[in-house]
Nucleic acid binder design. Structure first.
Ligand code: MN
Ligand code: MN
Ligand code: ZN
Ligand code: ZN
Lengths: 125, 125
DNA sequence: TAATAAATGCGACTATGTTGCAATAATTAT
DNA sequence: ATAATTATTGCAACATAGTCGCATTTATTA
């Protein structure tokens, strides 16, 4: 399945690229002013994740947030291996620079990480 | 609102207490063999969390998992301050002993932690 | 035993996310 | 340039998770 370049894909990509925060489907939909269908946005985002262009965090509100990968391809780190922060004031999610550290539990294989810290961000403080 | 002792509450509590894993509402419902209504189970679980009897983790599947608090009342730790592990083989969530460590980001207040490591557990290895 | 109000069951509802399918459009081959 | 191929889209339907209002039940207290 070779990927194609479409308007929708480019639009979602630019919205995500111009955001300093991770975004949920509905936030993206609002930005597109209804130009793209819900299901299509999800499909585009999931494709971005498959292709390693973006990554996904599930926050403690149960929603999926997507962000462009910056250092995700660093082979020394597992995918998603950095902390995320959810501000309960401005309801945004951001990627934190800090890498999640943990001791490898005996006989466990760890393939992915999904870590969110919740609180109030510096802007809302 | 003083809490009352009811059969349903005791049943959910014993199911949760006898489980070595964190449990979702639907897993608990299966254990009760339909004796308790969906909404009631959620209400009981949420009350447990309010009362500090249990704690809740949101896994990367977007579902809420509940577990009896063991060291949750340790004042040195934020609520939920330990890692959780989701095994993609047996589809279970467990509380890990390890505490999540992170450096306090400048001007951020952190109130809660929701950290899940995903992979294959020792039993499924 | 009666009064009070917490807890329950049921149904309706919201929200998030996925999928099937026919139509559209980007790519590739002719 | 045109036609063939097939990835992508829009739409509707569906699935699942979780919440809420309200009448009824039931634990607690008076
Ligand atoms: Mn991130
Ligand atoms: Mn736990
Ligand atoms: Zn904020
Ligand atoms: Zn397992």
């Amino acid at each position: 399945m070779k990927r194609r370049n479409t308007e929708s894909k480019e639009l979602v990509l630019s919205i995500l690229s111009n955001s300093t925060k991770a975004m949920s489907q509905d936030a993206i939909e609002r930005k597109t002013e209804g130009k793209i269908d819900r299901a299509t946005i999800y499909r585009i985002l999931n494709r971005f994740c498959e292709d390693g262009i973006a990554h996904k965090v599930v926050a403690d509100d149960g929603k999926r947030y997507f962000a462009i990968c910056v250092k995700c391809d660093d082979p020394s780190n597992l995918p998603n291996n950095h902390f995320h922060f959810r501000c309960t004031e401005c309801e945004t999610i951001e990627c934190m620079p800090e890498i999640v550290k943990y001791s490898q539990p005996e006989n466990y294989t760890i393939k992915k990480v999904n870590c969110v810290l919740i609180g109030v961000c510096s802007e809302c403080a």
